[in-house]
Computed example of a mutant assay.
Amino acid sequence: MLKRVSALLFGLAFAAFAHAEGDTFEAGKNWFAVEPAQPTSTGDKIEVVEVFSYACPACNFFQPTMAKLKAALPANAELVYLPAAFRPDEDWPTFQRGFYAAQALGILDKAHEATFDAVWKDDGTLHIADPTTHRPVSPMPSIDDVAKFYAKFGVKAEDVVGVANSFAVNTKMKRADAQLKAYGVDSTPTLIVNGKYRLTAQSAGGVDKVIPLVKFLVAKESAGK
């Protein structure tokens, strides 16, 4: 009986939320079904994935929205990052490798926002473009450069390089590339909700619509459970 009551209350709550915030969101316009739906990595929690690259200027611009989204997610949802590598001309594979090395070494929480700053702020150390001319730098940052930057977070640069070139990280990179294809992602930043729904700021109708749309889809999944 209690389970039935809980399910009914969740359904009513979702209906109210949908009426308040989601009645203008349309499947096939604001969000797209991932077919087939993909497995998640967050257990009982609803997974919200950000597909991004540190070397993506739009992703850098999107970071304040991501910070607000992370704070706005309900307790039954969890944010996960998925680094993309489909722009080798902009050094994305190097930063994907660095992400997984930082994750493996336990410094990702400290290094995540700082890496964006290192790439995009004028005094950053991992520029992919000249701050004045905006032309690509040559050579692009290497994994050794990323490792030297990560050393400020309490790890040795040589350890970062070793982990970055390990079998485990190579496997994670291949898995990430396959996951992006399965999601149907062709641009960044892109968000995936619970392995089922894909959206971008453009599809949502603007950056200011992203958080309401993600919360709508999280509520939709919560009601389904």
Results as ranks from 00 to 15, higher is better:
L2S: 13
L2I: 15
R4H: 10
S6N: 14
S6G: 11
L8A: 12
L8T: 14
F14V: 02
F14I: 05
F17I: 09
A20R: 12
G22D: 01
D23C: 10
D23Y: 07
T24W: 07
F25A: 03
G28T: 03
N30G: 05
F32C: 07
F32V: 07
A33D: 02
E35Y: 00
E35M: 01
S41E: 10
T42H: 08
D44L: 09
K45Y: 06
E47F: 09
F52E: 10
Y54K: 05
A58S: 13
C59Y: 05
N60W: 12
F61E: 14
Q63G: 08
Q63M: 13
K68I: 11
K70E: 14
A71R: 06
L73M: 14
P74R: 08
N76C: 03
N76F: 04
E78K: 04
E78N: 08
L79I: 11
V80E: 01
P83I: 00
A84I: 00
A85L: 03
R87S: 01
D91S: 12
D91G: 11
W92N: 03
Q96R: 03
G98M: 02
G98K: 02
G98F: 01
Y100I: 04
Q103W: 06
A104E: 08
L105K: 05
I107W: 07
D109M: 03
K110N: 05
K110E: 13
T115I: 10
T115V: 09
D117L: 12
A118V: 08
V119L: 06
W120G: 02
K121R: 13
D123R: 07
D123A: 10
G124C: 07
L126C: 04
L126W: 00
A129E: 15
D130Y: 06
P131R: 01
T132E: 09
T132V: 05
T133A: 06
T133K: 07
H134A: 14
H134S: 11
R135V: 13
V137I: 11
V146I: 08
K148W: 08
F149C: 08
A151E: 14
K152E: 15
F153I: 13
V155Y: 08
V155M: 04
K156P: 06
K156T: 06
A157I: 06
F167R: 02
A168G: 03
A168T: 05
V169E: 00
V169F: 02
T171H: 06
M173Y: 03
A176S: 11
A176D: 00
D177Y: 00
Q179I: 00
L180V: 14
L180E: 12
L180D: 05
K181R: 13
Y183D: 04
V185C: 09
D186N: 15
S187F: 13
P189A: 14
L191Y: 12
I192K: 05
K196C: 09
K196E: 09
T200N: 10
A201V: 13
Q202N: 15
A204R: 12
G205M: 05
G205V: 07
V207N: 14
D208Y: 11
P212T: 13
V214E: 09
V214Y: 08
F216G: 02
F216A: 04
A219H: 12
A219W: 10
K220W: 10
A223F: 09
A223M: 04
K225Y: 12
